[in-house]
Design a protein around this nucleic acid. Sequence first.
DNA 1: ATGCCATACGTTGTATGA
Length: 289
Amino acid sequence: MRIATWNVNSLKARLEKLAWWLERARPDVVLLQETKLADDAAPHAEVERLGYTMVHHGEGRWNGVAILSKTPITEVVTNFGEPLAEPLPEARMVSALTGGVRVVSVYAPNGRSLGSPFYRAKLAWFERLARWLEETRAGDQALAVGGDFNVAPEDRDVWNPAACHGGTHVSAEERAAVARLRSLGLVDAYRLRHDEPERYTWWDYRAGDFYKNVGMRIDHVLVTASVAARVVASEIDREARKGKPIPSDHAPLTVDLDEPGAPYDAGWTAAAERIAARRAAKPKRAPEA
DNA sequence: ATGCCATACGTTGTATGA
């Protein structure tokens, strides 16, 4: 069983790329973020044609999350079971049971800048997520919480800690919010299979950051112990961040349970050689950049 | 080269992103 998560930066704009990637990686379950669609605009028919059923939770121009699955989807919960209104007016969470795993697609707030109201709202949102997980967990159930957490858990998850220090995504409070999720028994499925640094899931569109590997690992799949024991592979598909049609600024992350999913070239080996060669010739982006 | 900001909304720009 292959579970994927991908911040698509508009499902409408990314439909063609998504269709290509579903064929390429053949995931069983896909957690999407930033669909940027209202529920009545969600492309259910197109997704059905690609072989998936979808549950979508959106509000329109911003945010929006979804779950795609090749098998039936039940027990859908949106917005922590609360109305899409204050204090949780943004569509950032949908959960469902599919393929025997309870999956949660999450899109954490950005935070914008340390100490801002948006930053405090980000921390409050993580508190709500942790509380909801505590309230709803039943024993050692198979659970996977995946999405765009907008937090790089460790310094090895960013291209340059000195450059990132003082900004969002790496602060002690944000990292403590993710650590609290780990304290609930969730483990980082990517790190179960990869210890190396310089593996990112997001790169800014600007300044050729992707090609310089100036990025952050901020998209994650966190799993309970019973799922962790089944993880046989996890990969970030950099190929999906390239080319035409225009890609999302995030790459998808896949986690394989029980047996490896469809093989695909994640594009890292060749990219790492090019990036290393370029770095040897020229130092990476300055800390003040 | 993989190749140098994108999206929606709305209207000739603005908000947002991380």
